[in-house]
């Protein structure tokens, strides 16, 4: 019998979440394959994949789990997609370096429940249409802010030379790290985009037990 079950895959950069599903389809040819939450092409880390009807039914529960992200914010530059794949739309040079304390204080203001406007380039629907489809056409995208919950937010690194901040967060579903980086930069009186993004955990599923793309074929055909 062909493989059925839940897989945690470590998505590499430069491919879409759907590319991972296509790769799996090529290996086992199954119809019912889904994932529990998109990771942008520039992002890496945990992608939960469900194979088989019995398991795709469980995807919603995975989607609802809290997630841990480690990400880097590039301060001083704004891009159209809020990530490194877009075009630079504005620059706001930073004259004096920030202090660790001021950055930590800013990060703490995002702890708990806050309002967040999703990115224009996102799968959010506006009157039935995907926001990214409208954004790609150059249309103005107005998205309603939603309530997000961040349980933990920690500063990992601040490099005053490159003006990059690295953080780790643990949050509830619906949190867009790309919007969070934008908002953190605004609070620091500048602009910013998410330069790197790693989804380190979905619920208790962590990177150390995730399969790489190369390991998929072996894992799926072993049964």
């Amino acid at each position: 019998m062909a493989f059925e079950g839940i897989l945690t895959v470590n998505k590499p950069a430069a491919i879409t979440s759907y590319d991972v599903i296509r790769t799996i389809k090529k290996i086992i040819g199954k119809d019912k394959i889904g994932h529990a939450g998109t990771l942008d092409p520039f992002a890496t880390g945990i992608l939960i994949i469900a194979i088989g009807r019995k398991f795709t039914k469980q995807l919603a529960s995975y989607q609802a789990m809290p997630k841990t992200y480690r990400f880097t914010i590039q301060l001083g530059t704004e891009t159209s997609t809020l990530d490194p794949d877009g075009e630079i739309i504005s620059e706001s040079p930073i004259s004096t370096p920030y202090t660790i304390q001021s950055i930590e204080n800013t990060l703490n203001t995002f702890k708990g429940e806050t309002k967040q406007t999703p990115p224009a380039f996102s799968a959010k629907k506006i009157q039935g249409q995907r926001a990214y489809k409208l954004a790609r056409k150059g249309k103005e995208v107005k998205l309603e802010p939603t309530t997000i919950t961040i349980h933990e937010i920690n500063l990992l690194n601040y490099d005053p030379k490159t003006q990059q901040i690295e953080c780790r967060i643990n949050c509830e579903k619906g949190t867009y790290v790309r919007s969070l980086s934008r908002d953190i930069a605004l609070q620091l009186n500048t602009v910013g985009y998410t330069k790197t993004l790693v989804r380190e955990a979905v619920g208790n599923h962590t990177l150390d037990t995730a399969l790489t793309i190369d390991q998929l074929e072996n894992h799926l055909t072993k049964n």
Binding site: N154, L155, N157, Y158, D159, P160, T162, E166
Partner: peptide
């Protein structure tokens, strides 16, 4: 363990 790095990450 909370460790913050100030400066480059190398």
């Amino acid at each position: 363990i909370k460790l913050i790095t100030y400066g480059h990450k190398k």
